[in-house]
Design a protein around this nucleic acid. Structure first.
Length: 644
RNA sequence: GCCGCUAUAGCUCAGUGGUAGAGCGCACCCUUGGUAAGGGUGAGGUCGCGUGUUCGAAUCACGCUGGCAGCACCA
């Protein structure tokens, strides 16, 4: 290298520092100031992250990443993964290390080892990690010729690492990082030493299986997950967030609020209880009105259909494994995994003119899919579910218009459920696809135009479209910032052809319509799961299974309480009455736990004055109101959002 | 489906080779109490299912089923 050549480094503020020869990031940081030198973690050289110890030999634009920068998190987590691997290798030298990246909120490392790691092992490993941090081992980067590196790892018994080296493109250098006795193959960059990862800013979370290279044909490794943060405070905040999310778990709340249950004899298929079904039917009623408003006509089609139809539609070929079948009269039937083929059958009855288009057919379609057992997850991933499905049959030049109308409807629906933040993902043509490029060009353009007209911002999901057409996916963000993909719109010009759907055009000739598959909620089951977690079980009035409970202070008010209950019920409220021989404290506690939005309490004074004392969920106060005023307030609050 | 963990009363959980426990809930009784647990009595379990080991299995082993975490999958 040109040791004598001057090196000029340009900092983010435009200032330039010149050095007599190659210079490391650390030297630069020290040159700028001791405070920065202490805080510096990594240097960015011409957009690429470098270790502070690496020599910069040419004029470059540089910036220094410190603990305060967001980019620091990824580096810290990556280091934590290495320290985890070092700890495991120290404790169980026979274990092979594979890969260990930083991920959202933390890091993991995959190990190959016969014996499973136990929760106690995690504690042991975590303790050893702290020791490694305290040892403050310098993290040293070296480059090594590929063959040498390959032989080195093989000699260490690290077959996986050798395999990784073999798959690194030959024009890329092989870099190794050494900390203590532990040497890992890694692209870097890393912190200057292990102490930069604080000893109380990380935590190992759990162990789980993971396939080597993410391929289910490969052997399974053991993955240890951990979380790491810049400060102890950040770590604590994260753990608290996890706890909060756990409290909202719809499976737990579903049991507590008596909404639904699952049992062995129908794994993955919810049994809806009265409370849960009330929510369900409220949503269904709302969607039915909304669909009518937007020109849909509701239909209902068989759940069980002869395999012949599935053969024609192509499902038998592709999704046979995921379909439930049954035999009768020597015919094989399958429970429908989706509704589109049946909807086309309805479309195909009679002769359709272009004047009948667009034809919007909607169904709350009950579907069954045999999902792999490991995929099941409460209401979020089930084997029987109901989609708010609809298919819009239209002419090709109506795609934009129909999509635009759909986007408008979808946003209104989400807003009514309290979701204002909606993201849009646009998936264009996949590698393997049906239809000509011209048709795809046209379909993609129509969709893009529609999204833009609807005033929506979108991100591209290149190559992720369905084989029959491009699609849009709608993602909403819940109260604690989690994203849920719910709605979708897919353009399909294959199915109408395959199932022989035609309409008579202006030209008096037969044409295949375009079919738009669309859903807003996705499945009722999953959407209700999302709602439960979003509201933490405290449903808004219009959805709350039980909207109000009325109870008395003593048995002396029983008659008045009954009278109030009748008035509440007559007003159309989902009311309950509690005449049990319990103290008011007890009853308030219990109904609060059940998350009933309003508790009406009548004592002697209320009974005498025709008033009621109202306690709202989440409030420690109560106020005494005129009975009818109180009822009317609840009635107003209970109005379905589309009727307001 | 794969790896690991797991299954005891309606719920939450303890017990871990020698005839099954707690709290809450439930039933009944006492108590009539003004806003997050008043007191007493009692009922309630083939310890997920099957096979094996053992004099003896809820407990140990194996298999199955369900659940949990993750991976893979998600038309």
């Amino acid at each position: 290298m040109n040791a004598n050549k001057k090196v000029a480094l340009t900092l983010p503020d435009g200032s330039v520092r010149e050095f007599d020869g190659p210079v490391t990031g650390m030297t630069l940081a020290q040159d700028i100031g001791p405070g920065l030198a202490k805080a510096a973690l990594v240097i960015v050289v011409n957009g690429e992250q470098w270790d502070l110890s690496r020599e910069i030999t040419t004029n470059s634009d540089v910036s220094i990443i410190t603990n305060r920068d967001d980019e620091a998190l990824e580096i810290i987590r990556h280091d934590a993964a290495h320290i985890l691997a070092e700890a495991v290798k120290e404790l169980w030298p026979d274990t092979q290390v594979t890969i260990g990246p930083a991920i959202e909120n933390g890091f993991y490392y995959d190990f190959a080892r016969e014996e499973p790691f136990t929760p106690e092992d995690l504690e042991t490993i975590e303790k050893r990690m702290r020791q490694i941090v305290e040892r403050n081992e310098e993290i040293i980067r070296t480059e090594m010729p590929r063959d040498e590196a390959f032989d080195f790892f093989r000699s260490q018994g690290e077959e996986y690492k050798a395999e990784i080296i073999a798959s690194i493109p030959s024009n890329e250098p092989i870099t190794l990082y050494k900390q203590g006795e532990f040497i890992d193959l890694c692209r870097g960059p890393h912190l200057p030493s292990t102490k930069y990862l604080g000893s109380d800013t990380f935590k190992l979370m759990n162990v789980a299986g993971a396939y080597w290279r993410g391929d289910s044909n490969n052997e399974m490794l053991q993955r240890i997950y951990g979380t790491a943060w810049r400060t102890k405070k950040e770590l604590k905040a994260y753990l608290l967030r996890l706890e909060e999310a756990e409290k909202r778990d719809h499976r737990k709340l579903g049991k507590e609020l008596d909404l639904f249950h699952f049992q062995e004899e129908a794994a993955g298929m919810p049994f809806w209880h009265p409370n849960g079904w009330t929510i369900y039917t409220q949503i269904e009623g709302y969607m039915r009105r909304k669909q009518r408003e937007y020109g849909y006509r509701e239909i209902n089609t068989p759940k069980l259909v002869d395999r012949k139809l599935w053969e024609v539609s192509g499902h038998w070929d592709k999704f046979r494994e995921h379909m439930y079948t049954t035999e009768s009269d020597e015919c094989v039937f399958a429970l429908k995994p989706m509704n589109c083929p049946c909807h086309v059958q309805v479309f195909n009855q009679g002769l359709v003119s272009y004047r009948d288009l667009p034809m919007r057919l909607a169904e709350f379609g009950s579907c069954h899919r045999y999902e792999p057992s490991g995929a099941l997850h409460g209401l979020m991933r089930v084997r029987s579910f109901v989609q708010d499905d609809a298919h819009i049959f239209c002419e090709k030049d109506k795609i934009t218009e129909e999509t635009e109308i759909f986007c408008k409807m979808l946003l209104e629906v989400y807003k009514d459920f309290g979701f204002e933040d909606v993201k849009v993902k646009f998936s264009d043509r996949p590698e393997v696809r049906a239809g000509s490029d011209e048709v795809w060009d046209e379909a993609e353009k129509h969709l893009r135009d529609a999204i833009e007209h609807a005033g929506l911002k979108y991100t591209a999901n290149p190559g992720e479209g369905a084989f029959y057409g491009p699609k849009i996916e709608f993602v909403l963000t819940d109260a604690i910032g989690r994203d849920w993909q719910c709605g979708t719109l897919q353009v399909d010009f294959i199915t109408p052809e395959r199932l022989n759907a035609n309409y008579v055009g202006v030209d008096n000739k037969k044409h295949h319509p375009v079919m738009l598959h669309r859903a807003i909620l996705g499945s009722f089951e999953r959407f209700i799961g999302i709602l439960i977690e979003n509201h933490a079980g405290r449903f808004p009035m219009w959805l709350a299974p039980k909207q109000v409970v009325v109870t008395g202070i003593t048995a002396d008010q029983d008659d008045y309480v009954k009278e109030v209950y009748k008035k509440l019920s007559d007003a159309g409220l989902r009311a309950d009455i509690d005449l049990r021989n319990e103290k008011i404290n007890y009853k308030v506690r219990e109904h609060s736990h059940a998350k009933v939005p309003a508790i009406f309490v009548a004592g002697g004074r209320e009974a005498e004055n025709n008033t009621i004392t109202v306690r709202r969920l989440g409030s420690k106060n109560q106020e005494t109101l005129d009975l009818m005023d109180a009822i009317n307030t609840l009635v107003t609050e209970s109005i379905d959002p589309d009727k307001r």
